[in-house]
Write a protein that binds this DNA or RNA. Structure first.
Lengths: 113, 113
DNA sequence: CTGTTCGCTCACCTCAGGGTAACCACCCAC
DNA sequence: GTGGGTGGTTACCCTGAGGTGAGCGAACAG
């Protein structure tokens, strides 16, 4: 994303918002968070089906980024066919709570238009 | 930004958050909002100086997008040298309020690291 | 023996958001 | 006359996030 500063350089972070934007600044990240908010334990294929339009590659990379940021937990069961479950961490749950007012603002704006 | 869906197609908007993300999904948008939050009436040059690293072109285009989205008001005084002031609209003020919890989450995360 | 499910990985390519730099008209101070 | 400050515009270029499509390695169904 040219959009947001992925480089994670120690500079900037003028206000807390851009710190948060680094975490949620992927095209589908908030939708992933939303899906995991509705039901905490989701499998990879479930998420793919819940988020129409996302490709497997991008879903996998976004999940790995969210995991690295401590937002989601990834649990892999050693079965065959393989099973992997994703869940929000405590930080992820609090992030979702912090996003609630923004979601409300967005819903309000949708209705207004 | 390949990052977020600028096309403003009437599709998607699964939850309110991505509606909001369309508005704040520019590299510097939240910093502009932050600067206008601290003091409501800012001139173009003030904003440029408050946001180190932003170029004039990008600041101008972001301001025009925020204006089109009804987030900021642009008032041009017919003087010479020209004077232009930017201020948050009511929607912009409420957006900033909705961003507060996210900013708090970000600040908390900065301190934790 | 073919197809399907599952959760990915790899290689390649596109495209638009953003960066760079020059330029505009106008006025003032030096 | 030249330099600075005002608020931009225009042209071009570049990077990287994200899209495309293929494959993989077991197991189980038909």
């Amino acid at each position: 994303m040219a959009t947001l500063n992925r480089p994670k350089a120690p500079d900037r972070h003028v206000c807390g918002i851009d710190t948060a934007m680094e975490v949620i600044g992927g095209k589908w990240k908030v939708l992933i968070l939303w899906a995991l908010h509705e039901q905490p334990h989701r499998r990879f294929g479930e998420l793919r089906r819940l988020i129409p339009g996302i490709t497997e590659k991008v879903l996998a990379s976004h999940l790995r980024e969210l995991e690295a940021d401590g937002i989601v937990d990834r649990v892999s069961y050693d079965e065959v066919p393989p099973r992997v479950e994703y869940a929000l961490t405590k930080a992820g749950i609090r992030l979702n709570e912090a996003l609630e007012p923004l979601a409300a603002w967005g819903r309000e704006r949708q209705e207004a238009s």
